[in-house]
Amino acid sequence: MTADQTPSPVTVTLVSGPPGTADIDDLELFYARRALARFRARLGRQGLLDLLAADIEEGNASLRESALASDGSFRGGTTVLATQGDLKASEFLVWMDEAFADENVLLAAHPEHYSITNQADGLVHVVENVGPHVSSFYLGGWGTEAMAWAADADERLPEADFPHKQATNLFLADGTIIGRVLIQFGDTEDGFTSSLSVYMPTACPQDVLEHHLRHFAIEFKNWITAAAAARS
């Protein structure tokens, strides 16, 4: 091979050995999830929070700085998921409401979910990655005056097609708003569509927004799959 030639990509294919039809990536995902579940169980919620304390402090500081520099301005992006099968949006949302009573179900939806707990005041405390940052923040107040921004959001879709809507701010313990979320669901002939919008302060690097769009794809796909499994 000469210096100006690009090496051809190398691929590895599972030809035989383990039973079943899963590919190697599927096998690795199974074992990665099992290992992660073991560490979560052994450490417990407080053990995880203690372990991540320095990361949370650094992540919150970075997001707070971006929020203050943005002076209340946000930019958004949307992940759209199409679900086919015998599951409608209203059924999924009923399952989600019930799922918030079981932290294990919520944590299992994404490797970077560390703690998701309901608070006595109706808010939800979340510790997860926001982009590359581990952050401890709160969400809640769906449909309150604090969410008036969602009525004028460019990403807001027609009620006739997406009647199920929820919006919330993501805010630190000191009240600093570090993000916003608008999620919308509408039935289709063969299932339903999820429109999942997230907004980050404009001073945040673009990759923070892009990572959370990927985050949405992973966690909602897993929640939808779990909701479908629970029905059967």
Rank of each mutant, 00 (worst) to 15 (best):
L170R: 09
T176P: 08
D190M: 03
A153E: 09
Q84H: 14
W142L: 08
G77F: 01
D102T: 09
T117P: 05
T176A: 03
N169S: 11
T168K: 05
A153H: 01
A146D: 15
V130M: 15
E91W: 00
A150Q: 03
A151H: 10
V181D: 01
F74Y: 15
E103C: 04
G85H: 02
A89M: 05
V94G: 12
A69R: 15
L139T: 14
P163R: 10
M147I: 10
V126R: 05
L87E: 04
G179I: 07
G77A: 04
A99S: 09
D154L: 01
D71V: 12
F74W: 12
I178K: 06
L157G: 02
R75P: 08
R156H: 01
A173D: 10
T117D: 11
G143Y: 06
L81A: 09
A148W: 01
H125E: 11
L106K: 07
F185L: 05
T78R: 15
G76C: 05
E155D: 01
S73F: 14
H110A: 03
A82V: 13
S136L: 00
P111Q: 00
D97T: 02
A82L: 14
N169T: 02
T144N: 10
I177P: 05
A153S: 11
A109Y: 06
F74D: 05
V134E: 04
G72E: 05
D102H: 15
S135G: 01
G76Q: 13
F100S: 12
V80Y: 06
D97S: 14
R180G: 10
G131E: 07
L87Q: 04
L93P: 04
A89C: 04
P158I: 06
M147W: 06
G76I: 04
L106R: 07
T168L: 02
L139P: 00
A173K: 13
V130E: 11
A69K: 14
E159G: 11
F162N: 07
L87D: 00
Q84G: 15
Q166I: 10
E91P: 12
A151R: 08
S115I: 09
G72T: 03
E112Q: 15
M147K: 08
D152I: 07
V124H: 05
M147R: 11
W95P: 00
A153R: 06
L87K: 06
H110D: 07
G175M: 01
G131H: 01
G179E: 12
N104A: 15
N169E: 12
K165P: 02
I178V: 12
G85F: 08
I178H: 03
A151M: 09
G76D: 00
M147C: 13
W149H: 01
Q84I: 13
E159P: 00
S135W: 12
A153Y: 09
V181R: 10
F137T: 13
L106T: 00
A120Q: 12
D161V: 09
A108V: 00
A148K: 05
A120K: 14
H133M: 06
L123G: 07
G72V: 00
Y114R: 02
A82R: 15
F74I: 01
H113T: 02
G140T: 05
L139V: 12
F171R: 08
P163V: 04
R180M: 11
A109L: 12
N104Q: 15
D154H: 09
T176D: 11
A99L: 03
T193S: 13
D121H: 07
A150I: 09
Q184K: 08
